[in-house]
């Protein structure tokens, strides 16, 4: 049966074209992957839980999060954006690579208030939560600091919470290059960057076509369906005031 594993969005590879393969060394073992594969794709074949945040198979490498860094031929590289080359020697577990990934995650968490216990996105598929666990983050090196922006609740179907946004840019990539409505961008030059709609207007006033791509690819709870709020976490349906206190409490006991 012709199951269609190759995502249509992934690029111009024709199915059936017998792609040549390359072999390389991964953590001391030989591995063989189709030519053109990235290191991250190759690593995920062997270690499905290998950390990565901004990479999504429908979007390709975005290179904003730095959490997938490995050593390739002695140099630290982003696995998501590095093509596998013949006889390359790749080490995922070196001290330097681990430190880089850990530092990257610490940087992300500076932009993300950890209140997973009461979060509506904590239902198994929160990429940030899972990656923090995979990296054994127990202490947050850079304390979370709020961004000087209000939540945007203007859209009827979804909200944007800048304080939860790790600026991975998945939403931007999805909007610019998969949906290609070209609404979202990150204003990188601000003191505290954030995702903006059009030229920085409330979502409801923008050219957003409400396709939902951005919400679907958001690796945390920054972009959430409003219908999920207060409904889908382990401890949901809390009043805003109680939620705030719970968030405060969980920050004491949770990683970070």
């Amino acid at each position: 049966m012709a199951a269609e594993q190759a995502p249509a969005a992934a690029g111009p590879h024709l199915p059936g074209s017998s792609a040549p393969s390359v072999s390389f060394e991964l953590d001391g073992q030989r591995a063989c992957v189709p030519a053109g594969s990235t290191l991250l794709q190759a690593i995920l074949e062997r270690h499905p839980a290998f950390p990565h945040v901004c990479y999504h198979p429908a979007l390709g490498p975005i290179q904003t999060c730095d959490t997938c860094i490995v050593e390739a031929d002695g140099r630290r590289v982003r696995a998501c954006a590095t093509p596998v080359q013949q006889d390359m020697c790749v080490v995922t577990d070196s001290e330097r690579a681990r430190a880089a990934r850990r530092e990257a995650m610490d940087r992300l968490l500076r932009d993300h208030e950890l209140y997973c216990t009461v979060c509506d996105n904590n239902n198994g598929n929160c990429t940030v939560h899972n990656t923090a666990l995979a990296l054994h983050i127990e202490h947050q090196k850079y304390p979370f600091t709020p961004k000087p922006y209000e939540q945007d609740n203007s859209h009827p179907f979804y909200r944007y919470d800048p304080d939860q946004c790790i600026l991975c840019g998945r939403c931007v990539e999805a909007c610019q290059n998969l949906q290609v409505s070209e609404v979202l961008s990150i204003d990188w030059e601000r003191e505290r960057p954030r995702v903006i709609w059009d030229h920085d207007v409330p979502i409801q006033e923008s050219s957003c076509v409400s396709c939902g791509h951005c919400v679907t690819v958001c690796p945390c709870n920054a972009l959430m369906e409003k219908s999920m709020l207060g409904e889908a976490g382990y401890l949901t349906g809390l009043s805003p005031k109680l939620l705030e206190r719970m968030i405060h409490l969980t920050k004491v006991v949770e990683p970070g």
Binding site: I62, V77, E205
Partner: peptide, 29 residues
């Protein structure tokens, strides 16, 4: 949405992040 003004870009434009003065690279090349 027809009243909006799209803002086309190449993508997330991560180079602009890397060019920030407070960004310290974690990769070697």
């Amino acid at each position: 949405f027809r009243l909006g003004h799209p803002h086309p870009q190449r993508g997330v434009e991560v180079e602009r992040k890397w060019q920030r003065p407070d960004y310290r690279p974690l990769v070697d090349e």
